[in-house]
C-alpha cells in the first residue's frame, strides 16, 4: 500500500501502464511494488496476497508483457510502458474462465485469480501443454483449500478448447 509520507517530489516517478487494454498514468515512489500500484492505487481487487509480500503464494500473479509475474516482487517503476493483464481484463467467455467455473475449480476463491492468470499465461504461450507442463506451471501457486485436482481439470479442458480453436 502506498505511503505518501515516505516519498518526496524528488524521487517520485511518473509511469505509464497499459492495463487490460487501457492506459494509466501513475505517480509512484521507487520502492512501490506493482501490487501496491495495481491494488491500492488503481483498485484492481482481484490481486490477492496471502504470503505478505514474500513471493511465496502466487496469489498476486499478473501477466506482464505476456509473462506471469508476482506483482508483490515486481517494482512498479520497472513496469513503465509495459502491458499488464489482470483477471478483470479477461473475457468472461475465455476458456480458462469458463472452465474454472464449470469444474468448480475453487473453494474459498482467494487464490483463484492467481491461478487463472498463471494458467492463462501458460496457455497464451504454449498451445497444447502436457499435463505435466500444466502442473509445473501452476506449482508456484498455493491453494490452501487444496482444490488442485479440480483446478487441473479446468486447465486441461481449457487447453483442449483452445487447441481446437474454441475460444
Amino acid at each position: 500500500m502506498q505511503d505518501n509520507y515516505l516519498v518526496t517530489n524528488n524521487n517520485l516517478r511518473n509511469i505509464r501502464l497499459k492495463i487490460n487494454g487501457r492506459t494509466f498514468e501513475v505517480t509512484v515512489a521507487p520502492h512501490w511494488t506493482l501490487y501496491q500500484v495495481l491494488k491500492d492505487q488503481l483498485g484492481f481487487t482481484s490481486i490477492k496476497d496471502m504470503c505478505l509480500g514474500h513471493g511465496a503464494c502466487g496469489s498476486c500473479t499478473v501477466i506482464l508483457d505476456g509473462r506471469p509475474v508476482l506483482s508483490c516482487l515486481t517494482l512498479a517503476v520497472d513496469c513503465d510502458g509495459k502491458t499488464i493483464e489482470t483477471v478483470e481484463g479477461i473475457d468472461p467467455k475465455h476458456p480458462v474462465i469458463e472452465t474454472f467455473i464449470k469444474h468448480h475449480a475453487f473453494q474459498c476463491g482467494y487464490c483463484t485469480p492467481g491461478f487463472v492468470m498463471t494458467a492463462k499465461a501458460l496457455l497464451d504461450r504454449k498451445k497444447n501443454p502436457t499435463i505435466e507442463e500444466i502442473i509445473e506451471a501452476l506449482s508456484g501457486n498455493i491453494c490452501r483449500c487444496g482444490a488442485y485436482q479440480l483446478i487441473l481439470n479446468a486447465v486441461i479442458e481449457a487447453t483442449e478448447r483452445l487447441a481446437k480453436g474454441n475460444r
Binding site: 474462465i97 467455473i101 468448480h104
Partner: peptide
C-alpha cells in the same frame, strides 16, 4: 449445477481484505 459464487473466478469477489472505505485509516 453452476456455482453461485463464480465471481471468485472473474476477480469480482470482494474479501474483507479488499474492502476500502472513504477516508479509511489503518
Amino acid at each position: 449445477v453452476p456455482p453461485k459464487d463464480s465471481e471468485k473466478v472473474t476477480g469480482r469477489a470482494i474479501y474483507t481484505s479488499d474492502v476500502k472505505l472513504p477516508g479509511m485509516l489503518y
